[in-house]
Amino acid sequence: MKRFIVPVLSILIIVAASGCGRNPLFYRMGADYYPIDNIGSQWEYSIDGGGTLIVSVIDQTEKGERACYRVLSGADYTYWIANDGYIEFYEDHRVMFNGYEVPLYQAWMTWLDWPLTTGYSRTDTASTFAVSQGITISHDWERTSVVKDIVTSPDGKWAECYHLKQYETTINWIRATGFEPETTTVRRDIWLAPDVGMVARTTADSSLTLVEYQQGN
């Protein structure tokens, strides 16, 4: 029995001493990185250069024949569905043509699927066209989301954030003489904090930082 005690104690010491290589993986896996399924939740962001953006979950409604959460972001509504393994966003792409708003693409699309990981990547695309006033307008859209790393938010307030980079390219082409394809490229850096959601977002022309978060019911 004594011969047995030595290796047992040795292994226990090794196990107890091995603190290296640890990270809160289970905390991240259990956290909700986009908690839009609590009605009444509100995020208040300060806009770099002045101003405030309020984002709040208003209610549950129906969009595209599916039940979803309606989120008021500034003056615009967005629509989300939170599933167990992924979150969906209602893509509503429109373009102004000759004074008319032309709907180009409306559909539910997966925004992110859980759990996030460093190096995670997903690309969504849509290619369609619409006819308005006898003119065809083609629409090609692509969005790539890549998780760059796990960091603290830029303001240093939120730990274990996933730093997400999004690249979104839209090509609208009015198929008529004198028109060329119009390409718009947007790059976003988004920081998602556990059980809070988006705590910072930067684009080429704006920067948001979360100043207050109130969780709804």
Partner: peptide
């Protein structure tokens, strides 16, 4: 513990 998803992998964690 090692987690991977959609081409990404979180840092592995060694825990008791």
């Amino acid at each position: 513990s090692s987690l991977s998803n959609s081409g990404g992998t979180d840092p592995a964690s060694w825990d008791p």
